[in-house]
Design a protein around this nucleic acid. Sequence first.
DNA 1: CATGAATGAGGGTTCATTCAT
DNA 2: CATGAATGAACCCTCATTCAT
Lengths: 196, 196, 196, 196
Amino acid sequence: MAGASTERALGKGDLTRRRILDAAAAEIARHGPAGAGLGAIAEAAGLRTGSLYFHFPSKQHLISAVLEEGIRASLQRLDAAMAAPQRATPAERLRAGITAHLRALAELSDYAVVVLAPQFAALHREVPGFRALRREYLRRWAELVAAAQDDGTLPAGPDPAEVRDLLLGALNAAGLAGQPPARTAEVVAALLRLPS
Amino acid sequence: MAGASTERALGKGDLTRRRILDAAAAEIARHGPAGAGLGAIAEAAGLRTGSLYFHFPSKQHLISAVLEEGIRASLQRLDAAMAAPQRATPAERLRAGITAHLRALAELSDYAVVVLAPQFAALHREVPGFRALRREYLRRWAELVAAAQDDGTLPAGPDPAEVRDLLLGALNAAGLAGQPPARTAEVVAALLRLPS
Amino acid sequence: MAGASTERALGKGDLTRRRILDAAAAEIARHGPAGAGLGAIAEAAGLRTGSLYFHFPSKQHLISAVLEEGIRASLQRLDAAMAAPQRATPAERLRAGITAHLRALAELSDYAVVVLAPQFAALHREVPGFRALRREYLRRWAELVAAAQDDGTLPAGPDPAEVRDLLLGALNAAGLAGQPPARTAEVVAALLRLPS
Amino acid sequence: MAGASTERALGKGDLTRRRILDAAAAEIARHGPAGAGLGAIAEAAGLRTGSLYFHFPSKQHLISAVLEEGIRASLQRLDAAMAAPQRATPAERLRAGITAHLRALAELSDYAVVVLAPQFAALHREVPGFRALRREYLRRWAELVAAAQDDGTLPAGPDPAEVRDLLLGALNAAGLAGQPPARTAEVVAALLRLPS
DNA sequence: CATGAATGAGGGTTCATTCAT
DNA sequence: CATGAATGAACCCTCATTCAT
């Protein structure tokens, strides 16, 4: 959970900026936005407090940037997972989605905490565009679930959105707790009795 | 999720103290421990900042008290749920546990956030006895799951602890999001294909 | 120029607040708004920096309060001076106005600097009502001058407003420089050849 | 009052240096020495903050340079005015001095504010030689006044220094307020009843 | 010459805490 | 019991300054 970086996924940019973002994500994940001190973030990034202001105009902007990084990386991974073979069966695609989500959690690490944890709802509201992105993310998952229900893979009846929320709740809990993706995916599949 | 009180469950005590605890739980749930200002807590409780110190010796103690209230109320509810008829089948007891957990979340509201959210891990470590209580809580759930696996109600194979973590993750996500307990319990039962 | 107080003129109020205002007026008069440090102001008022925030919500508000005090005290003194016997000749009233203005400068001291100095124009714009008050102040002076011109006491011809600006410019320069009011009034009267 | 330059009066030199000085004079005139940020000065001069240090070793030196520019330009103008026909009558020379002073204010603009305003007394003390130059400036004015008093042009009796301070106070107020020199000079002459 | 980047000292502000009333 | 007032530490932020490029 320490020093996670979205480097590879986000392309190369200003290196210092990336170090600051990673440090900020870690601090925020651990202590919340209010408890994340610029001093601690700067130290973790290898510079002094005042220097942060050369890269970000304020703590608020830094926090927003962390959220945006997290969202961007999340969506990118989801795209990769969802763009998978459309000819796959709903069950296969559901499995792929679960695995992709768990892997994303593991790779995003601290960013995932900031993006997903309901404790940061207040934060989320302050970043323009965040809600739209998350809505899109959830919409795709609901489609995945609905397809699996139509197919008989998942029990028909329950609202796909509710099913999705429960499913993602379970995945997030395991992922944020640091469980290995592959193993967790298997257990989930077993519980849902997905055809192997 | 607003202004929740554990009054009934915790018995009557000092009324002002209870108002302060409720206000603190709400602030902490929304802004984290660092972001919960004594000023905001005092205002929500109907007094001035300095007056808090008549009821609690420090912010740390106040926060600890909130956690302890949450834990006490949680365990009390769990006891009620688990103390259910031992002659019931594992499936029935699992269902009862799920419903009880969801009801507890709904009733505990802000306290539940503070007790459950992994973001408050740092806090949890500072409250003596908290880990023991939670361990006991999780042990009982693991037993419930194991019994259901032995019984064929849940797929055998996966580690009961992992199953439990996924299950509680799903329940907590729904509960903290404000979903109605009864409805959520049904969806969960359907997904797990518990016998009705 | 040091530690001036408008105490008597403004009525009794919170004593600490007054001490802070006086200290702030002195600091601002000497170093400008930007150069007036809250540390220096607090020290001169006999408390610590943070304590200022119990009495004023921000440095901006403190500065505005200083301006308002200065304006209030100025107008009060002007009223007294202008309310003088209406049966007096224009020359007598002009003399009285000059003396009153010089005395006000001496008594207001640091507040006068803040209220009058054109360097604080930026400040003035931020205090609502300031401009209206000053306009009224200047209007009365223009009337005084016009009456003296009609009367032959002052040369007719020049715009009363321009005459007033020159006159007040001279008075302010002498007053802010700390010249004794009585003596300065005599020299001004001599230069303008006012009948003794 | 905006973007004034002493270019013509001071001869040609480094162009960038002149732009910086003009920008600094404007900033200082408007916000005081403490409120004049190097960032704002640099921007107005068309370069970045750090680049200022190629032209001036520190903010203090830059401010001193502004003052020196202002003084140099002032004295130069005064010399021109005073060096006028010695055979002129005191009244004529007084008139010429008044006009020259007003013209200098108009031309020096922001520099005049910095040089004249009593609020910058603290600054003045830090520039070696400033006081001597000003003393000389004031001495010449006092002579001018004394000659006019001996001559009967101005009322005898008052201390020439006091008369001079009042006169310059009036001129400076009008000049810094942006009044046109010629017109102001006429009004002043009328008030003092100088022979036309 | 000029700049991007970093720094440290200091400034304004918040906040948990104390205490006399 | 409660509050108004004060405090000091820590915080976020600004700014003059330096320096490698």
